[in-house]
Write a protein that binds this DNA or RNA. Sequence first.
DNA 1: AGTATTTTGGCATACTATGCCAACGTGAGG
DNA 2: CCTCACGTTGGCATAGTATGCCAAAATACT
Lengths: 151, 151
Amino acid sequence: MDDKDRQIIRALQRDGRISNQDLAAQVSLSPSPCLRRVRNLEKAGVIRGYAARVDARACGLAITAFVRIRLERHDETTVQTFEREVGRMQEVTECHVMTGQTDYQLRVVVASLDAYEAFIRARLQRIGGIGSIDTSFAYGIVKDSPVFPAE
Amino acid sequence: MDDKDRQIIRALQRDGRISNQDLAAQVSLSPSPCLRRVRNLEKAGVIRGYAARVDARACGLAITAFVRIRLERHDETTVQTFEREVGRMQEVTECHVMTGQTDYQLRVVVASLDAYEAFIRARLQRIGGIGSIDTSFAYGIVKDSPVFPAE
DNA sequence: AGTATTTTGGCATACTATGCCAACGTGAGG
DNA sequence: CCTCACGTTGGCATAGTATGCCAAAATACT
């Protein structure tokens, strides 16, 4: 992982569909070694994939919520059940294990407040073992960048 | 925005570098109309771009923190200064305007706890006008999906 | 300095995107 | 029921792009 790799990563975070030729030009390599580096980063798991960045509102998904959750117990069964079920729920786009007051922070994307309430009551609570839920809604985006900080 | 567009969006969220031919096959179209739909979604701003999904740890960025911030005042100057400065900071990859107790939630990515402390003290606090900061660190990822829920 | 190993760049081939045009389907108005 | 207008589709020719292979260059190790 040298400086060229880092340049490549940042360029691909900015534009995941840049052509290999343009990418090679940006990092001052010829196309062959550039492509080989990209493939190596993919195989090594540094690049986990590529994704379109989509406007949730334009897709009719008006509500983005960050949900902090504490479990009632932390035995293996409760934890595994929670993580498995959350992994299956399409509405949950992210789930982080957290330090501090809460065990998990979820990012939940749904169409409406009604859909949010239905999700919490009919799907999330039904998992069982959840001690507390604390929701904050995002109603504006100041910044959303796929690019990591440089050194 | 019909059903085919929704299929296209989901396919591109799963794999942003899928070839147009494969995408067309997935959504049961021929390449030409498929590509035209993709370009229209891009022009309409539904697809905001494409990005490589990169493993932060593998890049030496061990710390991901969610930072909840309240401003001291909410006058135009304080708000604009905060949002402008946060937009410029590479360590802040996301900044959402929130409902409830806190004004903003930031996602901060840095190399180490030391770097985090330095960021908070030397850069974030220096913006001025910040009333309170509450940090939670993410130390594990259960789920991280770029795909929105389907109907 | 010399050798082993890795990385690079050029090239030929196969694949992919893209603009153009004709054909198809759909819906509204007569 | 017809027909016209509009939007969408699919095929095709062209231009652009990726990718595997090989020799050359650079780098690291003794």
